[in-house]
């Protein structure tokens, strides 16, 4: 009887530990709101989100994060545009084309790429890419949307590539064999059978890659240029939300309006990435239930 009691106690304790993740998620929400909500006594939610002017230290200050949101989305979409073809095609290479030894080298290599700290990529963008862009295109600054998107793409590629590869790998062999038996070439089989079968897995990969890009701080802080204005060209500077938070939190006086506004920006960022992750979870879950049936 005591042994059974012990077992029950262990199970309960483990359950409590498992709930810590949920608890932390709850605490994150609670503390973001605790420190962020007070800003809405000064500006309305609508003006905060859609206001075109971000002058937090002026007198009177303006707390409109629309330019920051636009900045975040532009670099995210542009980097996705760069990273998706590279990530998915490299996944195709690894899972369908590469000879075995090549595979054994490439997979860890991509994992290593994922491991490079973002501050290093930001540094690289500042020191190498920015001067090059500036000289080549004769720009006032090389710290701009294109630079940030390229470095973000480098961050997102490993995420996209490895998840997409898992999805491709999971496509049943019978599908491929059926296609070959009908006289399809290898590329036709890959394009018409394998990729469509893995499509929801690949979509998950893309969404998670985007989530990674939109939440990334150091790269956009160091190479996006920091202009809090709606850009007119891809060579303009922007100030994505994470960059704004990271750059200004150090100077914002404790519990000032500016401090609360930055936490409120954190809420927006958190909800956006949460949405991305829930969509990815939904897509991949749906994929798991229907399995190979999704064509």
């Amino acid at each position: 009887m005591t042994r059974r009691l012990k077992e029950i106690i262990i199970k309960r304790i483990f359950f409590l530990f498992a709930c810590v993740s949920i608890l932390i998620l709850g605490l994150i929400v609670a503390f973001l709101f605790r420190e962020g909500i007070p800003i809405f006594r000064i500006v309305s939610v609508r003006d905060f989100l859609l206001g075109g002017e971000w002058y937090p230290t002026f007198d009177p200050p303006a707390f409109g994060i629309w330019p920051l949101i636009v900045g975040s989305f532009i670099v995210t979409f542009l980097s996705t545009f760069i990273a998706v073809p590279l990530g998915v095609l490299s996944a195709v290479y690894i899972s369908e084309v590469a000879p075995r030894p090549m595979k054994e080298i490439l997979k860890p290599l991509i994992e290593l790429l994922a491991g490079i700290p973002s501050v290093v990529l930001g540094f690289f963008g500042m020191v190498v890419l920015a001067p090059w862009l500036q000289d080549t295109f004769d720009l006032p600054t090389g710290l701009n949307i294109v630079n940030a998107s390229l470095m973000l793409a480098v961050m997102a590629i490993p995420t996209i590539s490895s998840i997409a590869e898992d999805a491709l790998y999971a496509v049943p062999r019978e599908f491929k064999e059926a296609s070959y038996a009908l006289g399809a070439t290898k590329s036709e089989t890959i394009l018409k059978v394998i990729i469509p079968s893995a499509l929801s897995g690949i979509s998950t990969a893309v969404i998670l890659g985007m989530a990674r890009a939109i939440g990334e701080t150091m790269v956009v802080l160091m190479v996006a240029g920091g202009a809090a204005a709606i850009p007119e060209s891809l060579f303009d500077s922007v100030r994505p939300m994470p960059a704004s938070i990271a750059a200004e939190m150090g100077e914002a006086p404790f519990r000032s309006e500016h401090y609360h506004a930055l936490f409120a920006t954190g809420i927006v960022l958190f909800l956006l990435t949460l949405a991305f992750n829930l969509i990815a979870d939904y897509v991949s879950h749906k994929f798991r239930e229907t399995g190979s049936g999704t064509l």
């Binding site: 998620l25 605490l27 939109i214």
Partner: peptide, 23 residues
Amino acid sequence: IRIGVNCLAGVPSIVFGLFGLGL
């Protein structure tokens, strides 16, 4: 719990920074 863990994995690092600051 699983969704919670997944969501936690997706929280941007700067938001963790804000959370750490707040808590």
